[in-house]
């Protein structure tokens, strides 16, 4: 299989020693620019959005980033060993049992699949463990094929309204070296949560000796979004507010996954406070119910102030009795 090396640092336009904050910032900026909802050239933007997401998926995860950095220029060589991590030889007496899997249409590149989320068996590292005595005792006996698991990248817009995705799964029989590719389409139901698994019957490893094929489990991964994150069916949005908005309160218009809402910010809202907008999260099953939208208030300070503003802050300093380093007055 010919796989192209992906330079995730170039994709995000950050230095190799970029801090997690720099990576996050770069991702947000690019994700906003190429967000499929706003971009003019939709098809192009969607590909770019997925590329950015994949780079973010690796570089924002300390473990994955470490592994990726270690691969470096030796990635092609390292790739051969990568899936066997922790068990270099595999179980004794069972050389290279089981087929190799390769996904298409999941939203992740071949490179990512190979190193970070390639088709694993039962969610365990692919190392081809076979039932004891398989080769001699049960030769000719019907045996069910293994289940295969893989990830599928789903944007929040897709999770909101549901979608149909073409997926392909190529399996290579280690005995004959023959590769077969199966193509199919899978419906991702509206409201699919991050981590949810979709069972596709009969699309796992083929059975042996007339046994049935295993199943394929596709695990939904929500694409990171510049504005929203999810937890189950709930959606989180970080709302930047000015200090006076936090103190005086007010009405603020904010985006949701479907249209905008006007939020009434109460007076004296603390930094980090969480407000709930009921029923504006992801759909919950077929019931028509929906998760909630949580708004996390983040008080921002101005980075530069005019002469006039400065005079007002000075006036506030001389007038206010507030001292954050003293216990609150009884």
């Amino acid at each position: 299989m010919s796989v192209e090396f992906k330079d995730y640092y170039t994709t995000l336009g950050v230095a190799r020693d970029a801090s997690p904050e720099e990576i996050k910032k770069a991702f947000r900026k690019l994700a906003r620019q190429y967000h499929p909802d706003v971009a003019k050239d939709k098809a192009n933007a969607e590909n770019k959005f997925k590329e950015i997401n994949e780079a973010n998926e690796v570089l924002s995860d300390p473990e994955k980033r470490k592994k990726y950095d270690l691969l470096g220029a030796n990635w092609r060589h390292a790739g051969a060993e990568a899936p066997r991590e922790g068990s270099p030889e595999g179980p004794p007496g069972q050389p290279g049992a089981g087929s190799e899997f390769h996904f298409g249409g999941t939203g992740f590149s071949d490179f990512f699949e190979q190193f970070f989320s390639g088709g694993s068996r039962y969610g365990f590292p692919t190392e081809g463990a076979e039932p004891a005595g398989d080769e001699t005792e049960s030769r000719g006996r019907a045996r069910r094929g293994s289940d295969v698991e893989g990830d599928i990248l789903v944007t929040l817009a897709e999770a909101m309204s549901g979608t149909v995705r073409p997926v392909s799964l190529q399996s290579t029989d280690p005995r004959t070296g023959q590769a077969t590719t199966r193509n199919f389409r899978v419906r991702i139901a509206a409201g699919a949560t991050d981590g949810q698994r979709i069972r596709v019957p009969g699309q796992g490893e083929p059975g042996r000796g007339g046994g049935p094929a295993g199943d394929l489990y596709l695990r939904v991964r929500h694409a990171a979004d510049p504005d929203f994150s999810t937890r189950g069916s709930d959606v989180y949005y970080e709302l930047d507010v000015a200090p006076w908005e936090a103190v005086l309160g007010g009405e603020i218009k904010l985006p949701t996954l479907d249209g905008s809402v006007t939020l009434r910010l109460p007076a004296n809202t603390a930094n980090g406070h969480r407000l709930r907008v009921r029923g504006r999260g992801l759909p919950r099953g077929k019931s028509g119910e929906r998760g909630d939208l949580y708004v996390l208030v983040s008080v921002q300070l101005p980075t530069q102030v005019s002469e006039e503003e400065r005079a007002l802050w000075e006036k506030l300093r001389s007038t206010s009795t507030f001292n954050p380093r003293l216990p609150a007055a009884a």
Partner: peptide, 21 residues
Amino acid sequence: MNPSPESTAPGHPPFDPPIDA
């Protein structure tokens, strides 16, 4: 039983996993 997903060719319905089966 679930229909087996087969092809991306038009005319083949997508595999539609039942929710909460």
